[in-house]
Design a protein around this nucleic acid. Structure first.
Length: 844
DNA sequence: CTGACCTTGTTTTTT
DNA sequence: ACAAGGTCAG
């Protein structure tokens, strides 16, 4: 019957009077080291609370103390608390810390602590059958069939029998599957896939799902999307997903929101179950997540959202800063608690960050303060090009490890390089490889996104459910079985004609002799294999069918009943028998050994799970890998990936207009985009605890083309009193690293320039269209500017380190238009060229 | 059906 | 510059 009737821990909890649940004996040590604001956030348990927590203000601590407090006071049992995060990392970390002192919640595991997606999967597995085609088209304007159902509402009885619906064991598609599916639909609709790529459609649909728009809810304004076919393709896609018994990531939220909106009984149930709701990183919620929360919290309104509007950096993937800005309207009577004492960074760093973010208009406003002592100013340095920047940072990192910067010695583990876009990482990797500086890159292609892992996973999926058509398509000719387009089309036709899954279609095709020769033989072997693996996969008695949906998770007990093969052996067997292992063994490309290594790793990862199903479930949601070798390393990652982290030493390279703020961001989202970029800058600076170094390069290779750029406008927004300008090495004779042996202090080592009076800074400031900086400085710099540019008249022969010789064709501010003999015409900052007769003086 | 060329599009990223 | 994906000849 209805899954709502399931008996489980929640029912029991509901029947116990609150008074009997108090754990009065539990200590409240977790309250001890909270500051007044944190404490208020922890003790205001009733009603809506918005915890506005600036960077490094101890919001996670407050959140965890709040959970502990709810339990200690007996306000809720541990399974009545819903705690939502965005990333698995955050969820994992919170779980870990909650089990330790001072929270000591080992005996009270917070079962519903997880990402939006992980929690929605659990819920959706229980209510999958409520997702029908009607539901997909929830206002009933479905173009064809089932009119009677649209009229009669969404009663489960009618839905279950004659309307295709999702089943509890649905598969979660990864982006790859998604795009392949869409490609099929696009082709089927007779659209030129080249002009209208599946990738783009996937983006559009994702965007709609983030807004919680079902196909019939997509606003008319969007109807032009994807050559006017977007909405109908979306509808077709949703239909196809249901027939495949599959969902994509967006669906997890979308379906749950739809279910809550159309099934009051279900919603009520959960409103009673989840007595207290906590949300981390609220500024990153999209509309669907917001609706989901609002529906769940709608009854008791015991919702506590933690966030920082200044750290909202995911607008481009649907996050709405508006959600946090609007909180008090959404939840009348909400208490807003500001956490403003920062425990992470020095005052200079904090002031620099505050100075930058102050330029944003749409903010709730916070003033961070700290009791930490002064420390270093934020350091600013310009470079000739990206390579030099990488070189400098490499040397600087080494010097800081050696302690020759007049600062305390640091470990490489203390340092991070945070870039705007991942392609910037390349320069650092190249450089660090040549000087042998150990580094780690966070981000990049994830383990489970690698080709070989996906292929292997497709085999596993087939073993678990042979009717997984997408998995079958993926591996039917991998390794090569002589089953090309033609053969695959025949399989498709056969399957479609009989209304059966592809595996079955393939079997029929073989029986009818529709395929001959090598292809037929190989296909036969594959089908035999799938049947055999499927058999083995289901044999080891899996856990009782009843309580599955909710109470899976972590209980490692497992019955190791000897019969059959373990899922680990099975996995190995599958990879061997399918010829997949051999496929890579025979491959002579340099990547092959690594891929085999990854496959081994994959099999090893299976150990933590009881069976293949459990593993597949886990992987669908957790797309990160955890393998980490020993040794101190400097970290390279994007600013986005760095959110929530902190490092004693942070390098922020690439602060050039166009790169950061990103041109694209500004073109696409205008002022909103710029403000988001600025928040990114804020996030970057506030990652630093002790030393923050911002740098920019005048020249950079972009898509193989040399381009010159101007320092980022964000640099002008750094408050001068908290910034120290380091003289660019190579231009003013300042050596670095090895060039300054046994140096004692920054002064000698990096040729400390006299703050803002350094020529580098002056010229920097004085470029055309100077930013709003204070008056005196501006006028002074104009003079210098004139001098700098005066050295180059139109027609002058000049030399540029990268572009070679050229002739000045125009002057604009301190930028010169130069026609280079070899490199073509470019606009270059005067500072980086010398008169041609002084070419020999340019240092490298 | 496979391997060698050519065209194409390049942020940020979680789940 | 470069990787990936598509086209075309064998």
């Amino acid at each position: 019957m209805s899954p709502i009737d399931d008996t489980d821990a929640f029912e029991a909890a509901e029947n116990v009077p609150l008074s009997q649940r108090a754990m009065a004996a539990r200590p409240t040590r977790y309250l001890d080291d909270l500051n007044p604001a944190q404490r208020q956030a922890v003790e205001t348990l009733h009603g809506p609370v918005l915890m506005l927590a600036g960077a490094g203000t101890g919001k996670t601590k407050a959140l965890m103390a709040r959970i502990a407090h709810l339990i200690t006071l007996g306000r809720a049992r541990s399974n009545e608390i819903l705690a939502v995060t965005f990333t698995n990392k955050a969820a994992r970390e919170m779980k870990d810390r909650l089990s330790k002192t001072p929270y000591d919640l080992n005996d009270f595991p917070i079962k519903w602590l997880g990402t939006f997606h992980a929690i929605c999967v659990k819920l959706l597995r229980r209510h999958a059958e409520l997702v029908t085609l009607n539901n997909v088209f929830n206002s009933g304007v479905r173009p064809h069939s089932n009119a009677h159902l649209a009229d009669s509402g969404f009663t489960e009885a009618s839905a279950q029998d004659d309307v295709p619906h999702l089943k509890s064991n649905f598969t979660i598609l990864d982006t790859d599957d998604q795009i392949r599916l869409m490609k099929q639909l696009i082709v089927a609709a007779g659209i030129d896939e080249k002009r209208w790529p599946a990738r783009q459609l996937s983006g559009i649909i994702d965007h709609w799902k983030n807004r919680a728009w079902t196909p019939d809810n997509v606003p008319a304004a969007e109807s032009a999307a994807f050559d006017g076919k977007g909405v109908s393709l979306y509808a077709a896609y949703q239909e196809r997903l249901i027939t495949l018994n599959a969902v994509d990531f967006g669906d997890l939220l979308l379906h749950m929101v739809t279910i809550f909106q159309t099934h009051e009984d279900v919603l009520d149930q959960y409103r009673r179950w989840f007595r207290y709701i906590l949300v981390d990183e609220y500024q990153d919620t999209n509309v669907a997540q917001y609706l989901w929360l609002r529906l769940l919290a709608g009854g008791h309104k015991n919702i506590c959202c933690v966030g920082d509007d200044d750290q909202s950096i995911y607008g481009w993937r649907g996050a709405e800063v508006g959600n946090i800005l609007r909180f008090e309207k959404d939840f009348p009577g909400a208490q807003v608690i500001r956490l403003e004492q920062n425990y992470r960074s020095t005052p200079h760093i904090l002031a620099a960050a505050s100075g930058v973010i102050a330029a944003n208009k749409d903010r709730l406003g916070k003033t961070l303060w700290t009791e930490a002592r002064e420390g270093e100013k934020v350091r600013l340095i310009g470079h000739w090009d990206g390579e030099e920047e990488a070189r400098w940072i490499g040397e600087e990192a080494e010097a800081m490890v050696a302690g020759t910067r007049g600062l305390r010695p640091y470990s490489l583990d203390d340092m991070a390089i945070l870039v705007r876009a991942s392609h910037q990482m390349r320069a650092f990797e190249d450089r660090f490889l040549t000087i042998g500086l150990p580094y780690r890159v966070i981000g990049g292609p994830r383990f489970y996104e690698r080709m070989e892992i996906r292929d292997a996973m497709a085999y596993f999926r087939l073993a678990v459910s042979p009717d997984d058509d997408l998995a079958f398509e993926r591996i039917v000719n991998t390794p090569k079985r002589g089953l090309g387009d033609k053969a695959q089309q025949k399989i498709q036709q056969m399957a479609r004609a009989n209304g059966v899954p592809l595996v079955e279609g393939a079997r029929l095709l073989l029986e009818n002799g529709g395929l001959t020769g090598k292809g037929a033989r190989e296909l036969g072997r594959l089908l035999d294999g799938i049947a055999r693996w499927h058999d083995l996969a289901r044999r080891p008695a899996s856990r009782g069918a009843a309580g599955d949906g909710l109470l899976i998770e972590d209980e490692g007990s497992g019955d190791l009943s000897g019969a059959g093969v373990s899922h680990i052996e099975l996995a190995e067997q599958i990879l061997d028998e399918s010829g997949y292992t051999a496929h890579w063994q025979n491959d002579k490309t340099p990547e092959a050994p690594g891929r085999l290594e990854n496959l081994k790793e994959l099999v090893k990862a299976l150990e933590e799970f009881e069976n293949l199903q459990g593993f597949l479930e886990h992987v669908a949601l957790i797309m990160d890998n955890e393998t980490e070798e020993q040794g101190a390393k400097i970290t390279i990652m994007t600013l986005h990936a760095a959110k929530g982290l902190e490092f004693p030493v942070v390098f922020l390279p690439g602060w050039e207009d166009g790169l950061f703020p990103s041109q694209r961001s500004m073109d696409e989202s205008g002022l909103k985009g710029l403000e988001e970029e600025r928040r990114l800058a804020y996030v970057g600076i506030t990652r630093a605890e002790e030393v923050c170094t911002i740098s920019f390069a005048a020249n950079r290779r972009v898509y193989g083309q040399w381009q010159s750029a101007l320092p980022s406008r964000f640099i002008d927004e750094l408050p001068e009193a908290h910034v120290e300008v380091l003289t660019p090495p190579g231009l003013y004779g300042g050596g670095y690293g090895a060039a300054a042996p046994v140096s004692s202090g920054l002064e000698q080592a990096a040729a400390r320039a006299d703050g803002y009076t350094s020529p580098g800074w002056q010229r920097l400031q004085s470029r055309a269209g100077a930013r709003p900086v204070s008056q005196p400085r501006e006028s002074r710099s104009m003079v210098i500017d004139a001098e700098a540019v005066a050295a180059f008249e139109t027609g002058a022969r000049v030399f540029h380190k990268k572009f070679g010789y050229g002739t000045v064709t125009g002057i604009e501010g301190d930028k010169l238009d130069i026609a280079f003999d070899k490199a073509g015409s470019k606009k270059v900052v005067a500072r980086f060229v010398v008169p041609a007769d002084q070419a020999g003086d340019v240092r490298f």
